[in-house]
Design a protein around this nucleic acid. Structure first.
Length: 426
DNA sequence: TCTGGGGTCCTAGGACCC
DNA sequence: TCTGGGGTCCTAGGACCC
């Protein structure tokens, strides 16, 4: 079964890791446990994870790093560049621990999962939540918060409250309205920037007011998702628990450059590198792509220069996951959208309309070439897995990569390496 | 000087057909 | 001069999430 129906009597828990990336860095660096810590996005661009101490200082989520440098210096905040290999690994450990409680789990993001715990009796529910927290902390070292209620949207609300609560576990059943009354509309799951603006303009500034809005109004003013959110706040489940991990439908690889680039050759290098990475990803999942999109843009923040952004989508004649073929197509597309005289800040590719390799079995008519290229791709993937990404690459990807992103604060922790484990002297 | 990256879903509107 | 209407399918772009 890939999806579990949630009903009014369900108990759905949302487990969310506290300051996840920061917590991961702290695992390997006990000295920073009580210190203000932040983790930066790729290219050391924005703040994407903050410890409680860092939040208190006034460092905001998503803020550009250069804007908080003063605060960082003043309060001696510890800074980390992001290390997704590490976070992915720790995330798998957390999810595995969670599965020791139940298989009725939806892994919602790298640091969040829904769990169906309907079988647990109401009077036991808080204790059960505590047990989950304790086990995850003990087995992985990661602190979590748990919100429990009868719909996903309400358990999100509960989780939000649990984050600010000492116990870390909230069961939302009685006095829901009391809680929703003080719950800001923009913190409701599914209500983003645009919807917030619309709701606030109409005097709806809390979750309770949204809950009590008329069905006709919400359907007329928003879309089905808006209506679902309202129903879910009322305790009427509209969103199922997706227990089966599905394959991705598209695959995007893009990066900002460490410094802006003007030159087509350098853009080609980066697009080539992105293609190789994306192709490897879909091969790993046994997928083929039927369409590739290439996009480039200059910085949207630079008010002194003219903005340029363009993309092109190209359909592949036959679904493929062959790196070389994808690179060739991408370069062709890039050449079409490239304009001389701009300082580019970012480039990327998207593979879409992905399908399973199995859906297209090789048969007698399959050209020999295709079989050969499959073998070549397998060898490349194997070598790169063993000797590090890009051990084998193609010349087009460039050797010195002067456009490479900034990563000045990396903890360089590799969970597959013994050398980096803390040493104990006896 | 310096502003992330990778996804999903929905919908309006165009293309096409009869 | 007059220039339908209704249906389906597809896609780009927008909104949302973390």
């Amino acid at each position: 079964m890939s999806s579990i129906n949630i009903n009014r009597k369900s108990k759905i828990g949302l487990i969310d890791c506290n300051s996840f990336y920061v917590s991961c860095e702290r695992l390997f660096n006990p000295k920073i446990i009580d210190k203000p810590v932040v983790v930066l996005s790729n290219n050391d661009g924005c703040v994407i994870s903050r410890s409680t101490e860092a939040k208190k200082i006034g460092i905001k989520m998503g803020e550009p790093y250069f804007k908080v440098k003063e605060l960082v210096k003043k309060h001696n905040v510890k800074i980390f560049s992001s290390n997704y290999a590490l976070y992915g690994d720790i995330s798998r450990r957390v999810m595995k621990t969670l599965k020791s409680f139940s298989n009725k789990i939806e892994i919602y993001s790298i640091d969040e999962a829904f769990i169906d715990i309907t079988q647990v009796e109401e009077k036991e529910i808080i204790n059960y939540g505590r047990e989950i927290r304790e086990r995850i902390l003990k087995w992985t070292g990661i602190p979590t918060s748990i919100g429990i209620s009868s719909t996903k949207t309400l358990s999100k609300v509960a989780n939000h409250i649990a984050k600010k609560n000492k116990s870390g576990v909230i069961f939302l059943k009685e006095n829901i309205n009391e809680q929703l009354k003080n719950f800001d509309i923009s913190d409701v799951w599914g209500v983003g920037k645009q919807l917030s603006k619309l709701y606030k303009k109409n005097g709806i500034d809390t979750a309770l007011k949204l809950k009590n809005i008329s069905n006709t109004w919400v359907k007329k003013s928003t879309n089905v998702l808006g209506a679902k959110t309202v129903m879910e706040l009322r305790g009427i489940p509209c969103i199922n628990l997706e227990t089966q991990e599905t394959k991705r439908k598209s695959c995007c690889v893009s990066r900002s450059f460490g410094k802006k680039i003007e030159n087509l050759e350098k853009l080609k290098e980066s697009v080539t590198t992105h293609c190789l990475n994306a192709a490897e990803k879909i091969r790993l999942d046994n997928q083929l792509t039927k369409s590739i999109t290439i996009f480039i843009r200059t910085s949207p923040f630079d008010k002194n220069r003219k903005y340029y952004s363009n993309s092109i989508s190209i359909d592949l004649p036959i679904a493929t996951n062959n790196s070389i073929e994808l690179v060739k197509t991408a370069i062709k597309g890039l050449t079409k959208i490239y304009k001389y005289g701009y300082f580019y800040q970012k480039a990327g590719i998207i593979l879409s309309r992905l399908e399973d390799t199995n859906s297209r079995e090789l048969n007698l008519l399959t050209p020999l070439m295709e079989k050969k290229s499959k073998t070549l791709m397998r060898v490349i993937d194997f070598t790169n897995a063993k000797y590090g990404r890009n051990a084998i690459s193609i010349a087009q990807a460039g050797m010195n990569k002067s456009w490479k992103m900034r990563k000045e604060h990396s903890s360089k922790i590799d969970t597959a390496s013994f050398d980096l484990l803390p040493k104990i002297s006896i």
